[in-house]
Design a protein around this nucleic acid. Structure first.
Lengths: 332, 332
DNA sequence: CATTACCTTGCAACCGATTGCAAACCTGAC
DNA sequence: GTCAGGTTTGCAATCGGTTGCAAGGTAATG
């Protein structure tokens, strides 16, 4: 089927070692044999088998990329960035789609079977223990978009969700909203809970406020829409911090169904600043999460871990900022 | 680092072959040794190295998944389906993000280096020759969303884009539109050209019609919006077939900017029927492409190819149908 | 010209598995 | 108890590479 080292060696009239060495960076080969080998290799269309070599070198350059967010449009951007960043460094993403049925432990075992050099858990909804399972199995791991505070054993790259909660609350207050609410993501998502904590922490400084909160079933358009429809039926607050942009967009759809104008009748602030939020028809005021920097940094971290597997775990937290668009009333 | 066959064999007091056999389906092992081995394996936390075994078996269960559409929201659905379908069958998706910079030939080489069992090209914009390069390199390949007519050497799964063009034209005519246009995807995309061909073929049966066409720079919101803004400035037609849903949504945004109501002032019909098109705020009339069936069928085909690599190439074409929503005026 | 030092090169062992083959084992029938 | 039959088992070769080591080659030095 495919051409092997041996055949190239035979054609070039050299030993197998010679061939191997011409294809490994920084090995000692004379220019003469190198050119003989390269000629033979070109003639046969040879390229080395990465998997076979991984057996001896212990490096596959395979990186497990694990996520459970295949329904949030933001993840198209996330996958695009991750796959590019990995490719640029000569690493290959092996995808794991964590569906409801899949046992988490399975993904650890599976990625070990494929000897991935490292794993990236890209999810704001999975608990720190999930990422830790990779660590415990000896697989270097980065939890991107993970919870920073309580995971001392695992690298985390992302934002401070608690602070984002505070930021959203402050933003609503600064614009004069007094009856406000948090419409969060699913209750079992760490990001939803952290944003909730920050939000509440901030509003509790102002006892005069009328504050409510609720949690949607998922970070999805449908869930955001359904939850906002319910709130509207029950009598809504004046302004909401929605768990993320896709929830916000769902909520906006509920508003427009009821003939309400976002930014005028009811305020909405989201989180992520995904591409769609910039669309004129959406025009969502939101908290910008620096996705690109987070992902680049995550992949950097993966590379560092490959160099030094014992690297001391660290949390890389990136600051967020409010992007003003049309779904909150202007500051007074 | 990780536990090997040899260590398990030592602990269980059997030969390495015995251990290997307990882990391979249908090999002959006595219940006694099997249980000894399983006990030892559990104790050490052993699981077989898939890559090492691939060396002798010739099967990695790695499937290259290649795409260049990381900006179209429809592809989140596509990736979700593909990764699930592959996982369910014990196959692992190795992703290739075809960016503008990446040389196509590189992806063939790369996937050969990783000995993928097969490749799936998931793109409606790549030419048949791209998929054929895999075939020529001895990598079984399926071109999902590919052009059917002219690729006799490669398996294709998708829809009949020419027929979809006709269908869109017929739909516009049936609703009484007489000044109509095709707002297609990028000119170098096979799908954009095929839909164009079908559209024109149909309208040319009616010489009285006033027909225009143009091509957007990409299948993207921005491109659709920009192109529609240009058309509006120059004096638009009454009804448009937009190359796909995301282009349509961009076009809708341009309409609403100009205070025009889709379905009333100007008609739009898209293609794909992606999740977003069902959103109340979008409510796009569109041609449904059976994504799920296409993907399941693609993965089925991959499995068949693994069984019989010489399998005669086939085109699997799925029918599409119009989904009526709010962006075309009703049939008279 | 002999000696030393450095480059190249091939040999052979090894990475972690699978598998054909022949020997060893077990079972039941006579 | 012996023998034929089928099972189980371990040996050793193999998959496609890498790499430590020692031998051979070359060039520079004295």
């Amino acid at each position: 089927m495919s051409v092997t080292l041996k055949e190239v060696a035979a054609l070039a009239g050299v030993s197998r070692s010679a061939v191997s060495r011409t294809f490994t960076e920084g090995a000692s080969v004379s220019p003469k044999t190198r050119s003989k080998v390269e000629k033979a290799a070109a003639e046969l269309g040879y390229s080395p088998n990465a998997l076979a070599s991984s057996l001896t070198t212990g490096r596959t350059k395979l990186i497990g990329l694990i996520s459970n967010n295949f329904h949030n449009p933001i993840f198209l951007e996330v996958f695009d960035q991750f796959t590019r960043a990995l490719q640029e460094r000569g690493l290959r993403p092996l995808i794991v789609n964590l569906t409801d049925e899949t046992e988490p432990a399975n993904s650890v075992r599976m990625l070990r079977q494929y000897s991935v050099d490292a794993a990236i858990v890209a999810s704001s909804t999975l608990p720190p223990s999930f990422a830790k399972a990779f660590h415990d199995a000896g697989v270097p791991v980065v939890h991107t978009f993970g919870r920073s505070a309580t995971s001392p054993e695992v690298h985390v790259v992302g934002i401070d969700n608690v602070e984002c909660g505070r930021m959203a609350a402050r933003e609503l207050l600064a614009r004069g909203y007094r009856r406000i609410g948090y419409l969060g993501g699913p209750k079992d998502a760490t990001s939803a809970m952290d944003r909730y904590r920050g939000f509440m922490e901030e509003v509790e400084k102002h006892p005069e406020l009328d504050v409510t909160h609720c949690f949607a079933g998922a970070y999805s358009f449908e869930a955001g829409r359904a939850e906002m429809l319910r709130l509207l039926a029950e009598g809504p607050a004046e302004g909401y911090f929605c768990g993320d942009d896709i929830l916000s967009i769902g909520a906006l759809s509920a508003l427009s169904d009821n003939g309400l104008k976002p930014g005028k009748d009811i305020g909405i602030i989201g989180l992520n600043d995904m591409e769609m939020s910039r669309w004129e028809s959406v025009d969502l005021t939101t908290i910008h999460q620096p996705i690109k920097q987070i992902i680049t940094s995550s992949v950097d971290l993966v590379e560092e871990m490959l160099k030094d597997p014992e690297r001391y775990p660290e949390a890389r937290i990136f600051p967020c900022r409010v992007i003003e668009r049309g779904t909150l009333r202007p500051r007074p």
